[in-house]
Amino acid sequence: MRRVEHVMGFPVSLRVDDEGFDDTVADALFAWLREADARFSPFREDSEVSRLDRGELPPARTGPDLTEVLDLCERYRTATGGAFDVRLPGRRLDPCAVVKGWSVQRGAELLEAAGARRFCLNAGGDVVAAGGPWRVGVRHPGHAGRLCAVVHLTDGAVATSARYERGDHIVDGRTGRPATGLLSLTVVAPTLTEADAVATAGFALGRDGPEWAAARPGCEVFAVTADRRVLRTPGFPTP
């Protein structure tokens, strides 16, 4: 089964190679992603995140999902000494860097609970997969039509934070300025929750980010610095 929908502002593609897999599970997966977008997007005025940010939703009344997301945000803020921060001065509360990976990982767990054993779920280039081997290309930060690495993924996830799609959009919370020490940072981890958050938090740390990300349990790293040096952990899973 193969299916693609546009959710959260990017294409999400699903491939399931199990015979006779029930299409209604894919319906539930994409319904969950649309629900997560509606509840946690800072760009929707009626979302839980926007209401919390405006003071209309008391912190004591946030649901368990939003509490989990905000706890993850705080964990990475503390771990990076404030470089990763979803509450930047003068800006709205924006937990997107955690919500994307967290919600897609939840979707993958929904697939597994329904019996999927071999699948690949790609959310705007960040991937969670099972039953591999799967080959996931990492875009070259300077050439849109080229790859700088290929990840060999069996069961796990890979995420990349970079400047090539949205420019200098990741801010170092310690300085309030865009993080420019890296061109791209790719993280392989057991879950997309970890891979996506660590990639963004590490990118916010700049040149110190690859070493910090590599020290996170279960994470392997491939990075290209602003001066175009390639850094790779020994266990980064290339074919």
Rank of each mutant, 00 (worst) to 15 (best):
P58F: 01
A60E: 11
D46T: 14
R44S: 08
E45M: 11
F43R: 14
R44C: 07
D46E: 15
D27T: 11
E56T: 00
V69C: 13
R61G: 00
R34L: 12
L33E: 01
E56Q: 13
R34S: 08
E35L: 10
E48T: 08
T67A: 14
L29A: 05
L29F: 02
L66V: 05
R61P: 00
V69L: 14
L52F: 06
L33H: 00
S41W: 12
E35K: 01
P42S: 03
D53L: 09
D53E: 08
L57M: 05
V49T: 13
P64S: 14
A26F: 04
A60W: 02
E56F: 07
A31C: 03
P59D: 02
E45Y: 11
P42W: 03
A36I: 05
R34W: 12
L70S: 11
D46F: 11
A38S: 07
L66N: 04
A36Q: 10
P42D: 06
T24S: 15
L66Q: 01
G20M: 13
W32G: 06
F21K: 13
S50Q: 03
A28T: 04
E48C: 10
P58G: 01
L29S: 06
T24L: 13
R51V: 00
R54Y: 06
E19W: 00
V25F: 08
R44Y: 14
T67Q: 13
A60Y: 04
E35S: 03
F43V: 07
R34Q: 12
L66I: 01
F43N: 13
G55F: 09
R39T: 03
R44P: 04
R51I: 00
E48M: 04
P58W: 03
D18K: 10
A60D: 06
R44G: 09
D23N: 06
S47T: 09
W32Y: 11
T67D: 12
G55W: 05
L33D: 03
T24G: 12
V69G: 09
G20E: 03
D23V: 08
V25N: 07
S50P: 05
G55T: 08
V69T: 14
F21Y: 08
R39Y: 04
R44I: 12
G20W: 04
E35Y: 05
D37N: 13
A31V: 01
A36Y: 02
